[in-house]
Design a binder for these strands. Sequence first.
RNA 1: GGAGAAAUGGCAGAGUGGUCUAAUGCGGCGGUCUUGAAAACCGUUGUCCCGAGUAAUCGGGACCGGGGGUUCGAAUCCCUCUUUCUCCGCCA
Length: 424
Amino acid sequence: MLTLNLIREQKDFVVERLKIKNFDAASLVDKILELDAIRRDTQKNYDAILADINRISKEIGELIRSGKKAEADAAKTKTTSLKEESRRLAERLDEIDKELRSELIKLPNLPHESVSPGHGAENNVKVREGGVIKELEETALPHWELIKKYDIIDFELGTKLTGAGFPVYKGKGAKLERALINFFLDEGEKAGYKEVLPPIVVNEDSAFATGQLPDKEGQMYLIGSDNYYLIPTAEVPVTNIFRDVILDAADLPIKTMAYTPCFRREAGSWGAHVRGLNRLHQFDKVEIVQIAHPDHSYEALEEMVSHVEGLVKKLGLPYRIMKLCGGDMSFTSALTYDFEVWSGAQKRWLEVSSVSNFESFQANRLKCRFREKGGKQNRLVHTLNGSALALPRIVAALLENNQTPSGIIVPEVLAKYTGFNIID
RNA sequence: GGAGAAAUGGCAGAGUGGUCUAAUGCGGCGGUCUUGAAAACCGUUGUCCCGAGUAAUCGGGACCGGGGGUUCGAAUCCCUCUUUCUCCGCCA
């Protein structure tokens, strides 16, 4: 959520910037400013009436204390009409507030000045790439064949237990999954991230604060009996740790990471590109989150990008880093880098991580601020997050790229976690 | 699931209808003293909204777990929800 101050002071700038995201904000911004003016006016009147009531009440107290009962009773009748008016204004203020807020949350975050315009993935900008793409043998199999051949991930069994998109990891498949999680967490710890193991169901307040509600409601599984949501990403519980919190500038940046299963309904997605591990309803992910000082959040972003880059390098996967164009960025992001790894048998790039700076957009909803030493006013922090990493597509790429006639070679860095170096 | 108790500022903790403008202590910040530090002493202290001002600041309003109510007036009384603690039950 953008701050009202920004919209008030730099209306034209807001409208101009949002064009990069192909969002025409002009009429929405006007409506917001109009509602804002009404709200302030209403509040001014309301506060004045409350001040009157407070003053008269104080006088009544003094009159009663000095035994002037008749005068006190007279004063009481004066407040009757004021009370009626205050009640009316309180209702009006509440209404306006809600309306203003519901409009305000329709505005996407402003893209960073370096974000280029564009409509979709085809306009994203390649930042750099690494690793070596090897040509696989003619007989190379896509991962959905490999997992059957070695019996390590079972979709049919998952369908029996739950439904499509909920695979069962078996034997070396389960162990590989566990190894990757531990590898990612250990690397994160080395990079200074504090591990947390949060709940994987959250309440409405949390889902709202990170922006999953209201616009992505249909993407989350809802536990209706308690009105809880299964998390689509650890970003939700981890970032919400900092909801309604005032931090000390000296404590920034705060680096947190979490492994969690993630749940996505992904309604309406089918086709060859979502086969096998490419898109699941439940998957594992290690997420890194930083709460940063606004003056240093882009340094934090670069640091996160190089952390993620280190992971894919160590796994020996060919990768490229894409800077998203305005049209391909999420509603809440100011700047996003996507990591893609090469899938040898599918012969295409798979997105395995998305690292973003949300600047103060999430912090404003979260009400996460910080106090600067000697500073008069609290400021909103900047929040950032990134996958480090999402497992299924990493597994898919590892299986496909590392296949040999005798089995699938496990990357060296993982061997100490798996206890084996080949899946056969 | 049953019975009882509680929720107050960064923390501890007083406050049962009207100077609560929330006592006091601890902590934090600033200062005096000191070569420096500690101790002692003095001062200061939260968040949000509205208005005035270039600004320092000033004025008004809201906030004592959340929501609602009674009253001219609520931290204080009533209703409701949530959470925590104690005891009992159940349980990996």
